[in-house]
């Protein structure tokens, strides 16, 4: 019974607490299940659908990781974490990896003892205003009332932006996105500010999307990416290179549909190494040779994941922008598989 586990466990708790840092990869393999810290629900990025299956941009990376480590994208358990619980859940070992729109900052890297192993989405804070307001630049927002979610980095960015531009504003504090959207639509604030991806998703579902504009200024850097515990570098490598495998797949034109065919016919040595046809890239990480091939087959390449979840064909309609490959003017750049 769980109760007895609890009592027994308490006695040895202090002794063993330090051991959790080591060998997440072995733990995941032994458990046969990857535990992925996810969002409690963010449109396009991570949320369960009507039948309880998790879907989204961040969720796809968890599934790719499940496919590369365990050979099965369905062997992933998603643990919803809130903004407050996410880092403790990771630090305490309740989740193996946190892929949940978390911004990479110096403090989180050092004081919280985490490693941000990659940036899977470059976001930035933007503003949305009603078209009637006649504002075309955030610099014209002097004296505006601004809806802002409390307790986030966006709150600090907003203060910095207005101060550095010598402007004043009146904050309207709201608790979450749905409340912000309601306040904004009810006219309680002139502008709503949050991450640009969130603004796009909100705008898409408003009664009349055409009457709202997202201003061109992006006032902060929000590099969002997967997080692992400090000190378990091998596991960090596994997460990082699984992500880079999806990026490289896009660069090389490998998709979920053609991955088998490419593996059989390609003569490009890097593609052959990526897909495990030659070399031992997987083994260097403690994975199977075809680990990355399975990941690509499970969710598709980075571009496919983007388009399917948040891209221009979806209601969220985000452009690739900074998240285009480096070859197309974006920032997404994978080191070589060599």
């Amino acid at each position: 019974m769980k109760r007895s586990v609890f009592f027994g466990a308490l006695t040895v708790a202090g002794l063993a607490a330090g051991a959790s840092a080591a060998a997440t990869l072995d733990e995941v393999k032994a458990r046969g299940e990857l535990i992925c810290g996810s969002n409690t629900g963010l449109a396009g990025f991570g949320a369960p659908d009507a039948s309880g299956n998790w879907q989204g941009f961040d969720v796809a990376l968890c599934k790719a990781l499940g496919a590369s480590v365990l050979g099965d994208a369905t062997k992933v358990r998603f643990v919803p974490t809130t903004g407050e619980t996410r880092f403790t859940a990771l630090a305490s070992g309740e989740v193996d990896v946190l892929i949940r729109n978390s911004t990479w900052t110096l403090t989180r890297d050092t004081e919280l003892a985490f490693d941000f192993v990659a940036v899977n989405y470059y976001d930035g804070q933007g503003f949305m205003v009603k078209r009637d307001l006649g504002v075309s630049s955030a610099k014209e927002l002097d004296g505006a009332t601004v809806c802002i979610q409390t307790g986030t980095t966006t709150e600090l960015n907003l203060a910095d932006f207005f101060k550095s531009n010598n402007m004043t504003y009146t904050p309207v504090n709201v608790a979450d996105d749905s409340e912000a959207q309601r306040q904004y639509l009810a006219g309680a604030c002139d502008a709503y500010t949050t991450d640009a991806s969130g603004l796009a998703a909100s705008r898409a579902t408003m009664p009349d999307p055409g009457s709202h504009v997202i201003l061109p200024e992006i006032i902060s850097k929000e590099p969002l990416g997967p997080v692992v515990r400090h000190g378990d570098n091998n596991w960090g490598d596994v997460v990082r290179w699984t992500y880079y495998a999806l990026l490289t797949a896009e660069e090389k034109g490998i998709t979920a549909a053609n991955v088998e065919e490419v593996a059989a016919s390609s003569t490009d040595p890097e593609v052959r190494r990526l897909l495990g046809v030659e070399g031992d890239m997987g083994a260097k990480l403690g994975l199977d040779p075809d680990a990355f091939k399975r990941a690509i087959a499970a969710v598709g390449n980075y571009g496919e994941v983007f388009e399917a979840n948040v891209g221009e064909a979806t209601p969220i309609g985000l452009a690739r922008g900074l998240n285009a490959l480096w070859t197309q003017g974006g920032l997404q750049y994978a080191p070589p598989f060599r």
């Binding site: 991570g46 369960p48 659908d49 919803p80 959207q181």
Partner: peptide
């Protein structure tokens, strides 16, 4: 703490669906 209570937990998940966002 990330459990799906009816008031906020489930509602947040429902709102994360683009059909019902907003």
């Amino acid at each position: 703490v990330g459990l799906m209570d009816p008031l906020r937990g489930v509602t947040q998940i429902v709102r994360a669906d683009l059909d019902w966002k907003g």
